[in-house]
Amino acid sequence: MAEPTRLDLLRGLLAESGHAAMYVSDLVNVRYLTGFTGSNGACLVRADGEAVFLTDGRYRDQSAAELAAAGNDDIEIVVTRDLLGVAAGRAPADLVAETHLLDVDSWQQLDRPERSGRLVERLRETKDDTEIAALRRACEISCQALEALVAGPLVGRTEREVARDLEWRMLELGAEDKAFETILAAGEHSAIPHHDPTDRELRRGDLLKIDFGARVDGYHADCTRTFVLGPAQDWQREIHAAVRESQAAGLDRLRDGVPVADANTAARGSLEASGWLDAFTTGLGHGVGLQIHEDPFIASSHTGRLASRTVLTMEPGIYLPGRGGVRIEDTVLVTDPDHGGEPDVLTDTTKELLEID
Rank of each mutant, 00 (worst) to 15 (best):
I132S: 05
I132G: 02
A134H: 14
L135I: 09
R136C: 06
R136T: 10
R137N: 12
A138Q: 10
I141H: 06
Q144V: 03
A145V: 01
L146A: 00
L146V: 05
E147Q: 11
A148F: 07
L149E: 06
L149K: 03
A151R: 13
A151T: 03
V155T: 12
G156F: 00
T158Y: 14
T158W: 10
T158K: 14
R160P: 05
E161L: 06
E161T: 06
A163W: 10
A163T: 04
A163N: 07
E167D: 12
W168R: 15
R169I: 02
R169G: 03
R169K: 08
G174N: 07
G174T: 09
E176Y: 11
D177V: 04
A179I: 10
A179S: 13
F180L: 10
T182R: 09
T182M: 00
L184T: 08
L184F: 04
G187T: 11
H189L: 07
A191V: 08
A191P: 12
I192F: 11
P193T: 07
H195A: 00
D196Q: 06
D196G: 06
D196E: 04
D196S: 01
P197E: 05
P197G: 02
T198P: 11
E201W: 12
L202H: 10
R204Y: 13
R204F: 14
R204E: 13
D206K: 13
D206Y: 13
L207C: 04
L208I: 12
L208C: 15
A214R: 11
R215Y: 11
V216C: 07
A221N: 11
D222F: 12
T224K: 01
T224N: 02
R225Q: 13
R225L: 13
T226W: 15
F227P: 07
V228Q: 08
L229H: 10
L229Y: 04
L229F: 05
P231S: 15
A232V: 00
A232N: 03
A232M: 05
D234I: 10
D234T: 12
D234R: 14
W235P: 05
W235L: 13
A242M: 05
A242E: 08
A242S: 13
V243E: 01
V243N: 04
R244V: 01
R244W: 08
R244E: 05
S246I: 06
Q247Y: 12
A248M: 12
L251N: 07
R253W: 03
R253I: 03
V258A: 02
V258P: 01
V258T: 11
P259E: 14
V260M: 10
V260D: 10
A261K: 15
A263K: 08
N264A: 00
T265A: 14
